[in-house]
């Protein structure tokens, strides 16, 4: 054919010019290509995940501050933490309370997911409204809630006083008994939409014929929810639980803006305490020990939950 007539094309010459190469070289070229593709992300994670993890552990066994050379400290910091540091224990307790608020949030979110997932008009509008708070800047959200909790002119005090539930305004964020609860409400407000979306996604993956079969067998709606929906939602619920637990470790912004740990240390979380220890009083070594304890506590919790969920709740970076 005509194209073939011009057979000695540039392409063919180029093809032959390559010459013989061994598979070994080919493999090496491919390995190099793959390495170039993977290296940037691996460097990022080496720099900002793996090296810091090891460095934290090393630092936690040293006496060290920015000016002085490091000295081996053994378990000094851990002794200090467990035996003498009351703030640490308070922060740990508050963090665990924060985890419980996640459970409450998830229960609420399951209820909302059932309602929003029903075939009703405007379900997408409801879903959007409930989810809208999740992607917002947490610092801004904290400032809004501070304002809503305000003692003098805050919306909540105004509402409670208007309906006659209280006579005197409550200083929600300045009171030892209410500050942590107030922050937890704001945190749940922000994240409940994410829980709901995850659970709705889980519900959508349940085959509809299961419900048809159940209703033919005479199961009522409650029985269908209890016997089909809930068990099949297990992976989604565990994923939410994982996110909630990680969040009790990572919720720095909200506390920093709303109370900065106060009054006293009533709203101190482990993460805010770590931050203050490291960057306000420059005890980086002690803060490293706090971080190591916190990290391994959360790792163990996550692994336990993962075991219970059958390994399906492994995706945790979502809470970032």
């Amino acid at each position: 054919m005509a194209i073939a007539a011009q057979g000695t094309s540039a392409g063919r010459t180029a093809g032959r010019a390559g010459g013989a190469r061994s598979w070994w070289t080919l493999r090496r070229r491919r390995a190099l290509f793959l390495f170039v593709l993977l290296a940037p992300s691996l460097i990022i994670f080496l720099l900002y995940r793996l090296i810091p993890l090891g460095w934290n552990i090393v630092l936690s066994f040293e006496h060290w501050s920015l000016a002085k050379p490091a000295r081996f400290a053994g378990l000094y910091h851990y002794e200090e933490m467990f035996l003498y540091d009351d703030v640490f224990w308070e922060a740990l307790r508050n963090t665990l309370y924060f985890m419980l608020s996640a459970v409450a949030g998830i229960v609420l979110a399951i209820g909302l997911a059932v309602l929003v997932n029903a075939r009703i008009r405007g379900r997408n509008v409801y879903r959007t409204i409930i989810f809208m708070s999740y992607p917002l800047m947490v610092v801004a959200v904290g400032i809004i809630w501070r304002w809503i909790y305000d003692e003098k002119t805050g919306l909540i005090n105004y509402a409670l006083r208007s309906v006659g539930l209280i006579d005197q305004p409550i200083a929600f964020l300045e009171s030892f008994s209410t500050a942590l609860l107030a922050i937890m409400v704001a945190a749940v407000w922000q994240i409940i939409g994410l829980y709901m979306i995850i659970i709705i996604t889980g519900m959508k993956s349940i085959p509809g014929h299961l419900y048809e079969a159940a209703s033919i067998d005479g199961a009522n709606r409650w029985q269908q929810f209890y016997r089909i929906t809930l068990p099949l939602l297990r992976p989604s619920i565990f994923l939410c639980l994982m996110i909630g637990i990680i969040m009790s470790f990572t919720s720095f912004d909200l506390v920093f803006v709303m109370t900065n740990g106060g009054p006293g240390h009533a709203t101190e979380l482990l993460i805010t305490y770590i931050y203050k220890t490291a960057f306000n009083v420059s005890k980086l070594d002690y803060a490293a020990a706090l971080t190591v304890f916190t990290f391994f506590m959360f790792l163990i919790l996550a692994l336990v939950i993962n075991r219970f969920s059958g390994g399906e709740a492994g995706q945790v970076e979502i809470s970032e």
């Binding site: 090296i51 810091p52 460095w55 934290n56 470790f249 990572t250 931050y275 980086l284 990290f295 970032e320």
Partner: peptide
């Protein structure tokens, strides 16, 4: 490893 656990190093 949450990023928050790495802030010091």
């Amino acid at each position: 490893i949450p990023f928050q656990a790495t802030i010091i190093p």
